[in-house]
């Protein structure tokens, strides 16, 4: 056996061990399965479920049936197909937006907290600016300049204004953490800054950040509806946030019993996704934070 293969095997073992822990933790495993299902839906779903966007008014608000597993929307389109085809954009935009937001927030919060002094003052000035500059006019200016289509730039726009709160929270935790014994100890031992950040600080704020990650994802779904109404991104009838908006505000679906399925479908999709992620995060806590396992 070569060294590489041993390494590969040990790595495989670590993965397997992680999986076992997840598997043993019922709730985390359920979460894992839900997320897997969403991932599959986003990747292969659109190839399996055909989407016809044409309106068939007479077939609107049909209840669930074999033909339409989730019924139809307010102009007679298949709700299930809308959800499936929307999932790729919705999830990738939400995930990217959350990734960028958390990335910026962690970077700003940690540097501000660790460095202190002038750096802290400047970064907090920036953070406060992002928190207080009125979003709406700025977005309108954006709208006249940019016409965004790809999920990447859209996620970037969404995150540019979303990181302020989390950055402050991270900073405040770092301020507290950096005075603790184990950090002091690490410093005394001469462990470098990267070690301290990656090994000591990050694991301690991860659970809090993970929960926020999830909420940022959810907010990104809603916020993209706002961007559609400003003209920054094109209208999309398959965006879950837009479906919810159409159901509750535009088409009046919640006022009529037969509209219930259409209103519930995107809501349940978002609820399930959040549940999956929350349960999964719950399991991750225990994996990453061995002290909790007992």
């Amino acid at each position: 056996m070569t060294v590489a293969s041993i390494r590969a095997e040990s790595r495989w073992r670590t993965w397997y061990a992680t999986f076992l822990i997840l598997y043993r933790n019922k709730r985390a495993f359920v979460g894992f399965l839900i997320l897997l299902a969403f991932l599959l839906m986003a990747i292969v779903g659109p190839y399996l479920v055909p989407l016809d966007m044409s309106a068939r008014y007479a077939e609107r608000y049909l209840p669930p049936s074999w033909e339409h597993p989730l019924g139809t929307d307010f102009v007679g389109r298949d709700t299930f197909a809308l959800i499936v085809h929307g999932s790729r954009d919705v999830l990738s935009i939400a995930f990217l937006a959350a990734l960028f937001t958390v990335g910026i927030a962690l970077a700003v919060g940690m540097v501000a907290g660790l460095q202190g002094g002038l750096v802290d003052a400047v970064l907090m000035l920036l953070t406060n600016t992002v928190l207080t500059i009125p979003k709406f006019p700025v977005m309108l200016v954006f709208a006249t300049v940019f016409r965004v289509k790809d999920p990447f730039s859209l996620a970037l726009i969404l995150s540019v204004w979303a990181w302020g709160g989390l950055a402050r929270a991270v900073r405040s935790q770092i301020l507290s953490l950096k005075e603790r014994e184990f950090i002091e100890a690490a410093r005394v031992m001469g462990l470098g800054l990267p070690h301290i950040v990656v090994r000591e600080l990050l694991p301690n704020i991860m659970p809090y950040v993970a929960i926020n990650f999830l909420y940022i994802m959810k907010d990104a779904i809603t916020a993209s509806v706002g961007l559609m109404f400003l003209g920054i991104i094109p209208f999309s009838a398959t965006n879950w946030g837009m479906m919810l908006n159409l159901a509750t505000q535009q088409s009046g679906a919640i006022y009529i019993p037969q509209g219930l399925y259409y209103a519930l479908a995107p809501m349940v999709a978002i609820i399930l996704f959040q549940l999956g992620a929350l349960f999964f995060a719950h399991g991750l806590d225990e994996v990453l934070n061995p002290r909790l396992r007992s």
């Binding site: 966007m53 044409s54 309106a55 102009v75 309108l140 709208a143 016409r147 559609m228 109404f229 400003l230 003209g231 991104i233 094109p234 209208f235 009838a237």
Partner: peptide, 20 residues
């Protein structure tokens, strides 16, 4: 949204973009 779909189905890919 409906008009964009109609034109797209007819062979002119059309994007609906509402503006404030």
């Amino acid at each position: 949204d409906n008009l964009a779909t109609q034109l797209t189905n007819f062979g002119f890919p059309t994007e609906c973009r509402p503006i404030e």
